[in-house]
Design a binder for these strands. Structure first.
Lengths: 149, 149
DNA sequence: CTAAATATCTGCGCAACGCAGTAACTGCGT
DNA sequence: ACGCAGTTACTGCGTTGCGCAGATATTTAG
């Protein structure tokens, strides 16, 4: 297994994930950013403030406000002020409204489940650990890129 | 290994890849779509026409034309008409201009190489095959989403 | 009690996008 | 040879997401 092959395949892999996100967004008639945000809301540990959403998505604070505006208007999330620090706004997903997204995801994940089912327990454990490591590495790389300006 | 855990981690994984693409785009002062397109240009087999780029990125033909306009203006690609079918426009990457992107990628991929180097040959083969399968599965899922409207 | 820092929101201009229509070209049938 | 449908790419136009800079409310430091 040549490293260059692995790298090339990683690149296709990355591209296919971005395309996938785009396709999901088109299908739900939402913007890719919005879908990304909803994904983060279900995948990352809360609680979420507008500022944290800005950080997670890489948007500026102003754009994050607009993003939350759209999601709130569409009924996906609710805002309420943090009682301990009244500057902060907590953003909470609305489970019922997330159903569209969850259903779509779970429909699509049939394919993934089938794929994962083909692996042995050890292989699944390897893939799981690899994903964790990749997420962590991405986080570091993103931080470095932002620092370098 | 519970399937739900695997699915949750897949979701974080997907989100982190989208974030990563976003960060690369910000760093190069390009639009995420443009970076995605350049990625596809190096990762997918050619030749590329404007129409194929539209299909790969999920954009409409008009937006794909504008995308190629931007990339051409920035010097990343050149246009020239297909001599056998003069309706078609072939889009070719300019290797020197791609250096920015390639260098950045290869700098960032140091981290990936290190990560991959930790695995055994068999494990790398598994990951490689898994990526291929995922790319193929994504392709199918995207096609289904687009068909459903 | 004032000043600096923090979290969010708002006004404004820019630009990417989809849509619908246009122009150039190919290939088909007659 | 001719015209007509289908294909490929491009062009206005309106909408909307985005960054930037400044405004507002609240907390924290001195």
């Amino acid at each position: 297994m040549l490293m260059d092959d692995l790298q090339q395949e990683s690149r296709r892999y990355l591209a296919s994930y971005v395309m996938f996100n785009q396709a999901v967004a088109d299908h739900l008639k939402l913007h890719p950013t919005d879908v990304q945000c909803l994904n983060l809301l279900t995948a990352e540990p809360g609680p979420f403030t507008t500022g944290r959403i800005a950080e997670l998505t890489g948007l500026t604070s102003g754009s994050a406000t607009r993003l939350v505006d759209r999601l709130e208007k569409a009924g996906y999330v609710v805002r309420h002020r943090d009682s301990t620090d009244r500057r902060r706004v907590l953003v909470e997903p609305v489970p019922e409204a997330m159903r569209d997204l969850t259903e779509l995801w779970s429909e699509l994940s049939q394919g993934w489940r089938a794929m994962f089912a083909d692996y042995t327990e050890d292989e699944r454990a390897l893939l799981y650990r690899h994903m964790q490591r990749t997420v962590e590495l991405s986080r570091q790389q993103i931080a470095r890129l932002r620092d370098k300006g």
